[in-house]
Simulated scan of single mutants.
Amino acid sequence: MNGFELKFKARLKKISEELNDIENFLRDNGIDIPNQNIPLKPDEKIRIPRRYIRTVHYFEQKYKLYDLLEDEVLVKNISYALQASDLFNYILNRFNIRLSVGKVFYKFAIINIFSIIESLLYGIANKCHSYCMVNNRVCKNNDSCNFYLKKANKYPFEKLLYTLSQKGLIRMPPELQNKLLKIKALRDNIHLWDVKNKDYFNDDYNLDNYNFLIKLLNILKKDLNKALENFEHNRNNNCNKR
């Protein structure tokens, strides 16, 4: 282990001890945390380190979101969710969150990343669909056109993956698609009243599934723009829109 890594871990240990001491200090002085707390102004609270959470502009440029999507609101919402993923990343890499609350925290981190992937894919489908509109009506050649995509909300997620794969807009082997669909089932447990099992017994809310989504998102970041560019080039050269 490098010397700087040892120093880094030693400093983290001191910070952890200090955070515990602060909370014990409050308890010793009669503060019933977390039911009670000392009111703090924004500049009196602990700050997330500068530059750990990247800017909206960074994500817009890094993912080329305005090239991928034509909906500015969606671009901004994806960028905000990517910022939230930086916060999840910071907490997961700096804090030891145990027991049931650790699984629930992984659940929220997984939901956030999955939602970003889902939004990118549905956003691309909508962009491709809008090209096929003529005077607010779908092109008459849609049934026979290999480049036609329906409006995004017409596709269940599994069908969307299949359609985008068939049209070359994503390159995702079946095993990756199958794993993504399994994780979608985890994401769909967002409604607590409708969850059949106790979340803290679900071992699928874990680092492996979280890391899988992060890696898949990085693959899409590299592939989506080129794939969409090729699709649009072929479509524009073979389109008989009317």
Rank of each mutant, 00 (worst) to 15 (best):
L121A: 04
F147Q: 13
K150F: 09
L220T: 01
L161H: 10
E60L: 04
H233I: 03
N126V: 03
I91W: 10
I38S: 08
I38K: 12
F95W: 14
A109F: 05
L169C: 00
S119T: 04
V134D: 00
L149N: 02
K9D: 08
E175Y: 10
E229S: 07
R11L: 14
L186G: 02
P34E: 13
A227T: 15
K76I: 09
H57S: 15
D143F: 13
C132M: 13
E70S: 15
S16G: 13
N35K: 15
N29G: 07
D199A: 12
L228N: 09
N35C: 13
R242K: 15
D71V: 13
S85V: 06
P42I: 02
N142P: 04
R235S: 06
E18L: 15
I113R: 11
R187C: 06
K14S: 10
P49H: 06
E72I: 08
N146Q: 15
I97H: 08
K151R: 12
F8H: 12
N93P: 07
I15W: 13
M1N: 11
N240P: 15
P42V: 03
L99H: 15
L69Q: 01
K196H: 12
N230E: 03
K41F: 03
K151D: 05
K151N: 09
L169I: 02
K226A: 11
K179W: 05
S130F: 09
C132G: 07
I116S: 09
D28M: 03
Q36T: 04
K241M: 08
K179Y: 09
N225Q: 03
F231N: 07
I110T: 09
I113H: 06
K76M: 11
D188K: 01
V134S: 02
C132A: 05
K151L: 06
C145M: 06
K127E: 04
E60P: 08
D208W: 07
K221N: 04
Y155R: 05
K196S: 14
Q166F: 10
N20V: 12
N218K: 11
L82G: 05
I124D: 00
E232P: 05
E158R: 14
F25P: 03
L6D: 14
E118K: 06
L19Y: 11
K215D: 12
L224Y: 00
R50V: 02
V138W: 08
N96L: 15
N112V: 03
L216C: 02
E23F: 13
L220Y: 09
V75C: 10
L120A: 04
K107G: 03
L87Y: 08
L216K: 09
E18A: 14
R27L: 07
E158S: 14
L40D: 02
I46V: 04
K103V: 00
E5L: 13
E232Q: 11
F8D: 10
F114D: 03
